[in-house]
Structure formats: C-alpha cells, structure tokens
C-alpha cells in the first residue's frame, strides 16, 4: 500500500480534478471572457471584436437610463433585509417550546419548494386589479387599501419584491433554525442564572452565536436582490418601471446588439455585489471567513 503521504497527494489531486475543472470551465473561463468582451464593442454575432478600451464603462456611469435601474433593485434589497428579519423571528419562535412545531415549520417552508415560474404565475393572478388580493381587502373592510399592484409605478417593484420575499423567507428561516439549535444550551442556562431576560439573551447570546449564519443569509439575499431577474422578467416582461439592472443588461445585449456594453454592465454588477458584501462584512464585523 502507498504511504499515507503519497495517498494524500494522490487523493487531493484526484478528488479535486473534476470539480475544479468544472469550476474553471463553467465559471472562471466565462468570467474572463466576459471581462474581455467588456473592453470591446462586439455586437454579439459578428467576428469583429473592436477594442474600445474603457468607453463601455464610461457610458454606464454617464447614462442614467442604465445605472438608474438600480433604483428598482432597491425594493428587492429592502424586502430582502425584512425577509431575513422575519425569517430569524420565526426561527426563534420555532426554536422555543411550541405546539405543532413541525406543522408550522413545513407550512412556512413550502413556498421555497414550489416551482419559481409557477409562483410568478400565481402572483400575477392574485395581483390583477380585480384579483384575489383586492377582493380580499374589500371583504376585510379594507377597501381603501386596494391598489393597482402592477399598474401603479410607485408600488409595482414592492409587489414584485414581495413575491421574492414570499418565496425565499422559508429557506432563510430553516437555515436560521438550524443555527439556533446548535447554540450550546449551557449558555442559555448560565444566562438564566444571571437573571437575563429574553431580550437580553437574544442580543447577547443568540445573535452573536449565529453571526456567521446571518452573514451567509444576508450575502445570498443581497446578491440575489442586486441580480433580480426572473420575477420582473416573467411577471411584467421587465417593462420600464420594473426593469432591473440585470434585465437592462440583457436588453442592451440582445435588443440593442451591444454585447460589449452589456458585458461591462455585468462586470460592474459583479464588482458592486462584491463591494456591498465587503461593507456588510465590515459593518457586522465578525471578520472570520464565512466558508
């Protein structure tokens, strides 16, 4: 038999070869190509890749129509943060002594397992101006709250972001729940002896102990919000009041035949996600690697 040292080398190499090949082929290589395209004015079809230097990047920041779409991503960001707060709240409740725990947990998790396209269709139906939501409000005597959920430009992005929140909060909740269950029970007992109330226990014991998980959940939520695509694309065909930065990117590439500019937009998006996550890490501290 081979020595464990040789085995180790062999194993690391053979176990990582395929996964890393996949990672490089389908993630890094396309990303490098993307960066290359971003310095050209390639139209997406021809064999010409005219080098244009930084001009694509300049036009992103000087064209309010392109960068302005981030205003629509803002709703997804806010709803994403609310989504995490709600998810954590329900996780804490479900982690306490409670009846029908499994039932509630399963119900709240259900939206996440439904097909994403089906969810958008269902909400499209519910948001119709004569749809279920407005009817429900009327029946509840809240007729004054009825809205044109899709037609009103100042509401529509919140309506869409809500769909995202509805779909994903169960996922966050289950992850938080798992983290909560792993906080050592002794810490709570010690706190109880010290006479700490529920609020203090939450702030000083629970939250610090699950910081890593909060970071990961926020990381996923924030990048998801900045890269929102499917919901506006299926629900409103990414009409101007609902266009996000990524739907605009696809439009620039495939309606206006400017793949170079679209690539630059994708690179900007990637950098922006990185920056936001860096800020988030700094704000929430923790410093330790999330992985």
């Amino acid at each position: 038999m081979l020595s464990y040292n040789t085995q180790k080398k062999l194993l690391i190499f053979s176990f990582l070869a395929i996964p890393l090949a996949l990672l490089i082929t389908f993630s890094f290589y396309p990303a490098v190509k993307l960066i290359y395209y971003s310095f050209t004015s390639w139209d997406g079809l021809s064999n010409n890749y005219p080098w244009v230097g930084l001009s694509n990047y300049k036009s992103i920041f000087t064209n309010p129509g392109l960068f302005g779409a981030f205003g629509h991503n803002f709703s997804y960001l806010v709803c994403g943060i609310i989504q995490n707060i709600i998810a954590l709240y329900f996780a804490i409740i479900l982690n306490s002594k409670i009846k029908a725990k499994n039932f509630f947990r399963s119900v709240l998790f259900t939206p996440y397992i439904l097909n994403a396209v089906a969810i958008v269709f269902i909400f499209k139906f519910i948001y119709l101006d004569t749809g279920a939501l407005n009817l429900l409000l009327q029946h509840m005597g809240l007729g004054s709250l009825q809205q044109d959920w899709i037609g009103n430009d100042s509401i529509v992005n919140w309506s869409l972001a809500f769909v995202s929140m509805w779909e994903y909060f169960g996922f966050n909740m289950v992850i938080y729940l798992a983290a909560l269950q792993s906080v050592p029970q002794e810490m709570y007992e010690a706190a109880k002896i010290d006479g700490a109330n529920k609020w203090k226990t939450l702030i000083y014991i629970t939250i610090p102990n699950i910081k890593g998980i909060i970071q990961i959940n926020l990381l996923l939520t924030i990048s998801g919000a900045l890269e929102a695509f499917n919901i506006p694309f299926i629900m409103t065909n990414a009409s101007p009041p609902t266009a996000t930065f990524l739907t605009n990117t696809m439009n620039v590439a495939f309606t206006f035949g400017n793949y170079g500019l679209a690539s630059a937009m994708a690179v900007v998006l990637l950098v922006l996600v990185g920056v936001v996550i860096f800020i988030q890490q700094k704000l929430l501290g923790g410093g330790r690697d999330v992985v």
Binding site: L23, T25, F26, S27, F28, Y29, P30, A31, K33, L34, Y37, G44, S223, E227, F229, L246, T249, M250, A253, Y259, A262, S263, M265, A266, L269, L270, V273, G274, I277, D289, V290, V291
Partner: peptide, 22 residues
C-alpha cells in the same frame, strides 16, 4: 474556497455566450 465564493456572485445569465461555446 475563495474561488467557490467569488463565482457565486457571477450572474450566470450574462456569461452564457462563453458557456455555450464550451
């Protein structure tokens, strides 16, 4: 590990031209 983390933030819909080539 950092590599896996970084690629998570690439919006894959924008890199389809290159992936398609592969």
């Amino acid at each position: 590990m950092a590599g896996y983390l970084v690629v998570m933030f690439i919006p894959t819909i924008t890199t389809q031209v290159a992936i398609f080539g592969v």
